[in-house]
C-alpha cells in the first residue's frame, strides 16, 4: 500500500509538471492547449537529439524544423530586428545537430549541457506554436483556437513520425538514472529525482509568478488583457513568455516521463497530455497549486487503482471516472475559483 502510493507520487509528479503548462495557458488566454502533450514529446526528443548522435537524416530534419520554429518564435513577439539574430542562432543550431550526427563531438554530450539546450529549444517550439496556431485567432470565438489546438497536436504527432519514425527510442541518460540506487542498494534514485525536481520546479514557478515583475505582468494580463495593455504591459510578449515557460516545463516533464516510462516515442504526448489535462481540471484549471495537487492525486489514484483492484486494465477508467465526477459535482476543480465575469 505505501509502496503503491510512493510509485503513484512519481507518476503524479510527471503529470503535475505537464499539467502546469495547461493551467498557465488557460489562466492567461482561457485556451485549452491540446498540443501541450506534443510539446512534451518534442522536449523528450530534444533531450535525445542533444545527448546522443543520431543519423544524419534525422538530425538534419530536426535542425530544419528547429530553425523554422525559432524564426517564428523570435520574429513576431520580441523585436522585429531580432529575427535576424534568430536566423543566425538557428543556423548555429543546425550546424550543431549536423556535427553531432557525424560524431565530431564527443559521442555522448553531458546531460548538464543537453538538458538546458533541450529546454530552450522546446520553449522556442512553444512560442512558435502560439505565433502560428493561436495568435491569429486571439479575437475569434473560443471554439476556433480549440480546434486549431487539436490540429496542432495532430501536426506535431505526424511531424515527429516523419522525422524520427514510429519506433521507440531509449535515452542512455534515462537508462543510467533508472538503474541508479541511493542509500544502499534498495532505494531507487529515479522516483526520488522525479518527485524532487517536480516539487522544486513548481515552487520556483510559484515564486516567479508571485514575486517578479514579469510574473506580475502575467497576472495582470490574466485579469484583463485590455487594461493590462493600457498599463504599458506588452500583452503579446507576456503571452509568448507564458507559452515559453509552459513549454520549458513540458521539456523537463518529457525527460522525467522518459525516465519514468523508460522509452520515448512520437505518440507519448497523447495519453500523457490527456492525463495531465485531467489533473489540471481535477485541481482546478487556471490554478497552479491546483495543477500540482491534481497531478499527485491522479498519479496515486491510478497506482492504487491498478494495484489494489487486481486488474491493471481498469486504471485509465478510474482516472476518467474521477474526471467525470469532478466535472459533475465541482466543475471548478478542487482549488479552482468560480470565475468572475469581467465588466
Amino acid at each position: 500500500m505505501l509502496e503503491q502510493i510512493a510509485g503513484g507520487l512519481a507518476l503524479g509528479g510527471v503529470y503535475a509538471l505537464i499539467a502546469l503548462g495547461y493551467t498557465m495557458v488557460y489562466g492567461i488566454i482561457e485556451l485549452i492547449n491540446f498540443a501541450h502533450g506534443e510539446i512534451m514529446m518534442l522536449g523528450a526528443f530534444y533531450v535525445l537529439a542533444f545527448s546522443v548522435s543520431m543519423s544524419p537524416d534525422i538530425s538534419n530534419a530536426f535542425a530544419i524544423y528547429t530553425s523554422i520554429a525559432f524564426y517564428f518564435a523570435v520574429d513576431s513577439h520580441l523585436n522585429k530586428r531580432f529575427g535576424l539574430y534568430g536566423i543566425a542562432f538557428a543556423v548555429i543550431l543546425a550546424f550543431f545537430f549536423w556535427f553531432s550526427s557525424r560524431k565530431l563531438f564527443i559521442a555522448e554530450i553531458t546531460p548538464l549541457i543537453a538538458i538546458p539546450l533541450a529546454v530552450i529549444a522546446t520553449a522556442i517550439s512553444g512560442m512558435a506554436l502560439e505565433r502560428i496556431a493561436y495568435k491569429p485567432l486571439r479575437n475569434s470565438p473560443r471554439l476556433a483556437p480549440l480546434i486549431s489546438a487539436i490540429g496542432a497536436s495532430l501536426f506535431y504527432q505526424n511531424l515527429a513520425q516523419i522525422i524520427f519514425g514510429t519506433h521507440r527510442y531509449s535515452l542512455p541518460m534515462a537508462v543510467k538514472i533508472s538503474n541508479a540506487k541511493i542509500l544502499g542498494s534498495n532505494f531507487a534514485l529515479a522516483p526520488v529525482l522525479i518527485i524532487l525536481s517536480a516539487v522544486v520546479i513548481m515552487i520556483a514557478l510559484h515564486l516567479f509568478i508571485a514575486k517578479t515583475r514579469i510574473g506580475t505582468a502575467m497576472r495582470a494580463t490574466a485579469q484583463d488583457k485590455y487594461a493590462a495593455s493600457l498599463m504599458g504591459i506588452n500583452v503579446n510578449a507576456v503571452i509568448a513568455m507564458t507559452f515559453a515557460i509552459g513549454s520549458a516545463l513540458a521539456a523537463v516533464g518529457g525527460l522525467l516521463f522518459t525516465i519514468h516510462q523508460k522509452t520515448l516515442w512520437p505518440y507519448m504526448g497523447f495519453m500523457a497530455g490527456i492525463k495531465a489535462f485531467t489533473a489540471a481540471v481535477l485541481g482546478g484549471i487556471g490554478s497552479i497549486p491546483g495543477a500540482m495537487l491534481g497531478g499527485f492525486i491522479l498519479g496515486i489514484v491510478e497506482s492504487l487503482g491498478a494495484g489494489l483492484f487486481g486488474e491493471a486494465g481498469y486504471k485509465d477508467a478510474i482516472a476518467f471516472v474521477i474526471l467525470i465526477g469532478v466535472l459533475l459535482f465541482k466543475p471548478t476543480g478542487i482549488l479552482g475559483k468560480r470565475s468572475v465575469i469581467k465588466v
Binding site: Q4, H260, Q261, E302, S303, A306, G307, A312, K315
Partner: peptide
C-alpha cells in the same frame, strides 16, 4: 496502451 507496470509489479 500500458506503459506503467509498477502497480502489478509492486503487488
Amino acid at each position: 496502451r500500458d506503459e506503467d507496470f509498477r502497480p502489478v509489479l509492486t503487488k
